[in-house]
Simulated assay, not measured.
Amino acid sequence: MASPQIDHGYTRIANEILDQTMKRKFNGTQLSLLMAIWRNTYGFQRKEHEMSIRFLAEAIGAHRNQVDRELTNLVERHVIIVVSTGKRGSRVLRFNKNHEEWIDCHLNSGLSAKTVTELSPRKVTEHTANPRTKKERIKKRNKETRPTKKYDEDSTYYKMASYFHDKVRAVAKAEGLGHLIIKANLQSWADQMRLLVENDEVEKRLARDVMDWVVTDSFWKTNILSAKKLRDKFPELALKMKATGKQGSGRQNNQMSQNEKLMREIEEEMAREQSGAEEAFSYHQQLLPELPNGRR
């Protein structure tokens, strides 16, 4: 008969953490992951520890894909913090006991628990705060899921994708996470940039500033490793950037890098478009007949 005793070991955890955990909308796998992380940090009188996906999967008896998916959700919601990359190449994880920073996904009418788990916090907010008709939702979904178009290397969106990819690749390599973007598809990244600008109506200059900033932020640089994640989190990232009053320092070096050349070309293209519009307006003004009072 099992007879657990605290003399054989126990995990000290504040009651406030347990109270907040019970109130939040975590699914079964997420709760198991939280307990596994508590066990291997607080249970050994430490705040953080290197834990691989395989280790956590064995600890809670779940498939690695499922663990990877739900752990990513906890990281995105600021419940778990990725501190760094450990000596064995896995992530060093820490539980964020400041529950006021957690991003919660509240269940609402029309949203199942599975739906809340799969949606990012940004998408849940959009769904609950700005409900659409079924026809509008289908139209928006079809627009975003249409086959990815082919982008030339000289196109603006491809240049934006290449610019961000090079920055992310440098961060991933430095953090030992290069394997996560080794198969990055720049065509897909370019399409996400198009959606960011055309669908989300984000200005290109703001997009560039956020790209520069996110790869320097201690928390986000290891959590935004793709163009899709950048787009999904863009509103939150832009607010964080403005709140900290910082922007990326990638252009402080006097010697222009290849990435900076790409963004300079994008800016010049935008300037040419504006100049062309002004010249066309001036030309049409000249064609108008002059009125007696000197006006056209």
Rank of each mutant, 00 (worst) to 15 (best):
G110K: 05
L177M: 08
V79H: 04
L71A: 07
E260S: 14
A14Y: 00
M256A: 12
A129T: 11
L177K: 04
R46K: 12
N199H: 15
G178Q: 06
T85F: 04
E201Y: 07
S282F: 07
K134A: 09
E50A: 04
G248Y: 05
Y157W: 08
S249M: 11
N223C: 14
F164C: 03
F55Q: 07
E268G: 05
P131V: 03
F234H: 03
R132G: 02
S52C: 08
S249K: 12
W38L: 10
D191N: 15
A184I: 05
E76S: 12
K135T: 05
F281D: 01
L177T: 00
K183A: 15
Q192H: 14
K123S: 10
V214G: 03
K23S: 08
A280K: 11
S282M: 12
S112T: 04
P4F: 11
I13E: 02
G43H: 01
Q192F: 12
N293C: 10
Q20W: 06
Q274M: 15
K221E: 09
K143F: 12
Q286K: 10
G176A: 06
Q252E: 05
D209H: 06
L195F: 03
A129H: 11
K204N: 06
G176S: 02
S52R: 04
Q30A: 01
D7C: 09
T21D: 06
R24P: 00
A170R: 10
E100D: 14
V83I: 04
K114C: 08
I81E: 05
A113I: 01
R169L: 06
G250K: 07
G250Y: 07
S218A: 04
N130T: 13
E58L: 10
L196T: 01
T145S: 09
V83A: 06
S188T: 06
K139Q: 09
L107C: 02
G178W: 05
K114F: 10
T11Q: 09
T115L: 08
S282P: 00
L93H: 01
G250L: 13
M160T: 00
M1G: 09
L196D: 02
F219W: 05
E100P: 00
Y158K: 10
K240L: 04
P289E: 08
K242G: 03
F44T: 00
N96A: 14
K47D: 13
Q247H: 07
N15F: 11
E265Y: 12
